[in-house]
């Protein structure tokens, strides 16, 4: 995935620049300048500010989105709005009364078209978001906070999971709906790390994260815990069913064979795993330390 869309939109950047220049030159050519003492500086500041902000939104849109229909619509709409605002700003310096009458009439018109285009863009954006939400299923529950994403695996971090656990603990307390947690620990991850390097190890973490996601049920949530551990929240699930789900996940993960210089690496994706069911009146931190110490215990006896 490309992380920077700056170079992707060269054509659109060109069109934007052209529109701005065209507008400015047209106004400069057709309308005479106002004398200095007629310029209202406060209006300049306000209208200039508005024009600048629409330009900023345009840039942000182009920086954050890949090519496509929604991007084009957003771009066209915002550009049209920006031209209106720009004309508004320029009429503080140029006298539109002495210019051809269509120039003055043009002032508000692009904004209207722009807003219509933006509304259409919003409709498609909504549809696009529905599809993305579907893809984020099992990675996210009701709440989006990009600051909590783990950079290496692309999943949410433990902090996100803690919030969700708190929420589930409340549901357990008030409605007595059971939930289970699972911890998955990659066997010999530090050896893999030393042998193949951090970059390879990081991509192994990302891969395993994805495999876990694929093999969970709808409504389950997987996050990266720390180091080589993943944590899974299974709402409305008792311990036996949780064990069943995670046994399946772990067998799928252990099938994974990453490539290094054309060769497959086997045996690096075996995992330790453990499920616990939350008890009523248990606290989030004691639940987590119970889960971890039980897993450590299990690791040391194997």
């Amino acid at each position: 995935m490309q992380s920077n869309f700056l170079k992707l939109h060269t054509q659109l950047w060109g069109i934007l620049l052209l529109c701005i220049l065209l507008t400015t030159f047209a106004v400069a050519a057709l309308a005479p300048l106002k004398p200095i003492d007629q310029i209202k500086w406060l209006d300049c500041l306000g209208e200039g500010g508005i024009a600048f902000m629409t330009l900023l939104w345009l840039v942000a849109t182009l920086l954050s989105r890949p090519k496509g229909k929604v991007t084009q619509l957003l771009f066209s709409g915002l550009t049209a709005m920006h031209i209106s605002m720009l004309l508004d700003f320029l009429d503080e310096f140029y006298n539109f009364d002495h210019a051809p009458s269509w120039l003055g009439g043009l002032e508000a018109f692009p904004a209207l078209i722009g807003m219509v285009l933006m509304s259409i863009a919003m409709y498609f954006w909504y549809q696009e978001q529905q599809i993305i939400n579907f893809m984020l299923n099992k990675k996210e529950r009701f709440y989006r906070e990009h600051g909590l994403t783990d950079f290496i695996s692309g999943l949410y971090r433990a902090d996100y999971m803690k919030q969700q656990i708190d929420k589930e603990l409340l549901t357990l307390k008030h409605h007595n709906i059971q939930f289970s947690l699972a911890l998955i620990d990659i066997k010999n991850f530090s050896k893999f790390n030393t042998k193949y390097g951090t970059t390879k190890a990081n991509s192994l973490l990302a891969d395993i994260g994805q495999i876990i996601l694929l093999n969970l049920r709808d409504g389950d949530l997987a996050c990266r815990y720390a180091s080589d551990r993943f944590i899974i929240l299974m709402p409305n699930t008792n311990l036996p069913s949780a064990n069943q789900v995670i046994a399946q996940v772990s067998s799928m993960v252990s099938q994974h064979t990453p490539y290094s210089k054309g060769h497959t690496i086997t045996g690096c994706s075996n995992v330790h795993w453990l499920c616990v069911q939350a008890q009523i009146n248990e606290q989030q931190d004691s639940l987590l330390s119970r889960l971890n110490s039980q897993l450590n215990e299990q690791k040391s006896t194997l």
Binding site: A158, Y225, A226, S227, R229, L288, N292, N296
Partner: peptide
């Protein structure tokens, strides 16, 4: 006890 207690859980035996 830090907020990132998970790091202790995962790294210290």
């Amino acid at each position: 006890q830090p907020a990132y207690i998970e790091q202790f859980h995962s790294h210290l035996n």
